[in-house]
Every structure is written in C-alpha cells, then in structure tokens.
C-alpha cells in the first residue's frame, strides 16, 4: 500500500539550509524508499539530492512543504521533520 503525506516545516537554524544541514538532510532522506520532495513557494526539489536542496537557497524562517510518497512515507516525514525541529543540531 502506497502512502502520500505532506507536512509544513520551518527552518529554525540561523544559517538556513546551508551546506551541512543540506548534506545531512539528503543523507537521511536517502535512507528511505519513499520519493521525498521539499517545496518552497513554487520550487519543488528532490530531498535526496544535496545539490537540489542547496539550490532552494532556503534561509532561516522559511516555510517548507515536506512531501513523501511511498511505502515508508510516514516514517520518512516524521524523521525528517525532527531534523528541522532540532535546527539540524545547530541551535
């Protein structure tokens, strides 16, 4: 059974989704089977690609729509949401 799930997340850490958090996010996203995307305004990128994540140029305070589709979509969103909540361990 396939799941699709979406959740709004905020960027809390001061530097935004800069290189280190982007790398961490892509690395964690890659652990899931689900197709995971991040959307800021009309821009949608692949969460498993660090280059995609960097090209979002998402700074502190930005709202991001986290979407996942696939068998483990729910776990993926939950896990990645925690990274955002935690400010990627930077705050």
């Amino acid at each position: 059974m396939s799941h699709a799930i979406a959740k709004k997340v905020y960027i809390r850490n001061e530097l935004g989704l800069h290189a280190r958090p982007a790398a961490l996010l892509a690395q964690e996203a890659a652990k899931f089977e689900a197709h995971i995307t991040l959307a800021v305004e009309e821009m949608v990128v692949d969460a498993k690609s660090v280059l995609d994540l960097l090209s979002l140029a998402a700074g502190q305070g930005k709202t991001i729509l986290l979407q996942a589709e696939g068998r483990d979509a729910e776990q993926a969103v939950l896990h990645l949401e925690n990274l955002f909540k935690d400010g990627f361990g930077e705050n």
Partner: peptide, 16 residues
C-alpha cells in the same frame, strides 16, 4: 572533515 563530508555528499548526489 565536515566540509569534506559535504563535498562527498555532493559528488555522491545521484542528480549530479
């Protein structure tokens, strides 16, 4: 090391 880890992730990016 942190910078290199990011570089490794970039080079390893399937999109690239």
């Amino acid at each position: 090391v942190a910078i290199l880890d990011v570089h490794i992730m970039i080079l390893n990016d399937p999109k690239l």
